[in-house]
Amino acid sequence: MTDAVAIDTGADTRKWGKYLYVSSVVLLCAWVIVPIYFLMINTLSSPETVSSFPKPFFPEFDLGSLKFFAGFAGMLTALKNSVLVAGMTMIMSILIGAPAGYALSRFEFRGKGTFRLLILLTRAFPLPLLALPLAVLFIRTGLDDTAFGLALVHTTLALPFAVLITFSLFSGIPIELEEAAWTLGCNRLTAFTKVVLPLILPGITASAIFAFVISWNEVFAAAVLTIENRTLTAFLLQNLDTSPLHLKFAGGFILVVPALIFIFVVRKYLFAMWGIANR
C-alpha cells in the first residue's frame, strides 16, 4: 500500500518535472524565435500592413518594404561598407589568428599559459573606453572614416576567438600526421598545406564566419570611427528615429540573417571551443 503511494508520487513528480522541462524549452525557444518571426513577417509585408493593426500572423511575401529599404538613400552603400569591413575583418583575423593558434598548439614556449589568458583579456576592455583614443589615433594616421581602419578595430575584437578556435582545431590534428608528411618529403609549409589545412578547413571557415559576424554586428566603433563610410549598423542607428517603421524592420532583418546562418554553421566548433562534447 505504502509502496504504491510512493511510486505514485514519484511518477507524479517526474510528470511535473517533465512538464516543467518541456515548458521551459518552449518558453526559451519562443523568447528567441517570436521576435525574429515578427521581424520576418514585417519585412515581407507591404509598408501599409507594417503600420496597420492588428498584425497578420503570416507574411504576405510583399517585397515593398525591402524595395523601399534598397531605395533609401545611402542604405546600399552602408550595406556594401558592412560587407567590405566584415570581409576584411574575416581575412585579417584568420591570417593573424590561425598562425597564433597553430603556434599555441604545436610549440612549447615560455609564458604560453599567460599568453592564452592575455588573448581573452583583450576582451575585457570596453570598446567605449578605447573609442576616443582610437579616434584620435586614426585621425592622426589618416585611418579615420575608412573601411580598413574600422576593419582593424573589428579584427582586434574577433582575433581572440579566431586564435582560440583555431588553437582547438590544430590541437585536434595529431602531430604525427605532420611528422609523417615531413618524412615523406614535405617541409613544414607543404606539410601544413597538404595535410593540416585540408583537415581543418571546415573549422577555419566557421571561425572566419564568426569573425565576419562579429564585425557585421558591431555598432559602437563603427558609429564613432566612421562618418561618410558608415556600415549598416551605424547607418541604421543614425537614422533610427527619423526612418519609417518598415525601413527599421527591413534593416533589422538584413542584419539578423547573417547571424542566424552563422549560428547554424559554426555551432559545432563553438561547442568544441568550450569543451562541450558534441556529435
Binding site: P174, E176, L177, E179, A180, A181, W182, T183, L184, G185, C186, N187, V195
Partner: peptide, 16 residues
C-alpha cells in the same frame, strides 16, 4: 627529415 633519405612507419600509423 625529408633530406635524410629515410622513410618511417609510425607506432600509431599516422595515416592521413
Amino acid at each position: 627529415p625529408k633530406d635524410r633519405g629515410i622513410a618511417m612507419v609510425f607506432q600509431n600509423y599516422a595515416v592521413f
